[in-house]
C-alpha cells in the first residue's frame, strides 16, 4: 500500500512539474476558464448543414467550423474528478450512452430500408449499384479502424510518432471513403435514381446520415491531430484518443451493416 501511495505521489509530482509552486496545493482545484469554442463549432456545423438548402452557407459554415476546431484545439484536455460511483469514467460513460442512442437512430433507418426492400424488391437498383466500388470503400473503413487502434496502442506506450502517423493514415482513409461515397451518389443520380424514387430516398437518407457521421469524425480527427501536435496526449493522458476511437469504430460498425443490407443481400 505504501508503495502505491509513493507511486501516486510521484505521478502527481510529474503532473505538477510546470505549475507555479503556490498553485500546487493538493486541496486546490484549478478548472480551466469556460470556453466558447464548442458553441462556435456547433454553430458552424449547423450553418454547414443549412448549406444543403442555400449553397453559399456551405463555405461560411466550413470556415466557422474550422475556426471552432482551431479554438477547441487550444483548450487543455482535463479529466478532473473523472469517476462516477468511483468505477466508471464520466466521459467514457457519456460516450457509450451516446453510442447506444446512435444504435437506435440507425436501426430506425436500416429498419425502414429493409421494410421498403421487402415491399418493393429494389431489383432494378441492384443493376446500377457499384459493388466493386463499395467493397473498396468497406475495406478503406476497416483499414481506418485498424489504424485507429494501432494509434491508440502507440500513444498508450508513449510512442508519439507512430501515434501521429496512424492518425494521419486514418484522416486520409476517412476522406477517401467520403470521396468514394460521392462518386457512388453521382453515378446513381446519373442513372436517374433521385429523391423521387423509393430506392433513392431510402438509399440517400441512410448512406447520407452515415456519410455525415464520417465527415463529423474527420473533423474530430483534425481536432485530435492539432492537439497531438501540441503534445497534449501521452501514455498518462489518452482518453480523448480512446473516445474518438469508440466513435470511429461505431461508424465502421454501421457501415458493415449497411454494406450487407444495401449491397450484398438481394
Amino acid at each position: 500500500m505504501s508503495i502505491d501511495m509513493e507511486l501516486v505521489a510521484d505521478d502527481m509530482h510529474e503532473h505538477m512539474h510546470d505549475v507555479e509552486p503556490h498553485e500546487a496545493e493538493p486541496d486546490e482545484i484549478h478548472m480551466p476558464p469556460p470556453s466558447i469554442a464548442p458553441i462556435i463549432l456547433g454553430f458552424g456545423a449547423a450553418l454547414f448543414l443549412l448549406g444543403i438548402i442555400f449553397p453559399p452557407l456551405l463555405v461560411v459554415g466550413l470556415v466557422v467550423t474550422v475556426g471552432g476546431i482551431w479554438k477547441m484545439a487550444h483548450f487543455p484536455e482535463v479529466d478532473l474528478h473523472p469517476n462516477w460511483l468511483t468505477f466508471l469514467n464520466d466521459r467514457k460513460l457519456g460516450m457509450w450512452v451516446f453510442l447506444a442512442s446512435e444504435v437506435m437512430f440507425f436501426s430506425a433507418l436500416v429498419g425502414a430500408f429493409i421494410a421498403f426492400k421487402i415491399q418493393e424488391g429494389f431489383e432494378e437498383a441492384h443493376e446500377v449499384l457499384n459493388l466493386p466500388l463499395a467493397t473498396v470503400g468497406t475495406t478503406v473503413l476497416i483499414v481506418s479502424s485498424f489504424a485507429v487502434v494501432m494509434g491508440l496502442e502507440a500513444i498508450q506506450s508513449d510512442d508519439r510518432r507512430v501515434f501521429r502517423n496512424w492518425m494521419l493514415v486514418t484522416l486520409v482513409l476517412g476522406l477517401t471513403f467520403v470521396s468514394i461515397q460521392a462518386i457512388e451518389w453521382y453515378e446513381l443520380f446519373d442513372h436517374g435514381i433521385d429523391e423521387t424514387t423509393l430506392f433513392g430516398t431510402a438509399f440517400y437518407v441512410t448512406t447520407g446520415f452515415h456519410g455525415l457521421h464520417v465527415l463529423g469524425g474527420v473533423g474530430w480527427l483534425a481536432l485530435l491531430l492539432l492537439k497531438a501536435r501540441r503534445g497534449e496526449y501521452s501514455a498518462q493522458n489518452n482518453l480523448g484518443v480512446e473516445l474518438f476511437g469508440l466513435y470511429w469504430h461505431f461508424v465502421d460498425v454501421v457501415w458493415i451493416v449497411l454494406f450487407t443490407v444495401i449491397y450484398l443481400i438481394h
Partner: peptide
C-alpha cells in the same frame, strides 16, 4: 468494465423492436 457492455446492450431491444415493427 462490464457496465459499458450493459449500457450498449441496453439499446438493442429498442433497435430490434424498431426493426421488427418496420419490417
Amino acid at each position: 468494465s462490464r457496465w459499458y457492455s450493459w449500457i450498449f446492450a441496453f439499446s438493442l431491444p429498442f433497435a430490434i423492436i424498431v426493426l421488427a415493427v418496420l419490417a
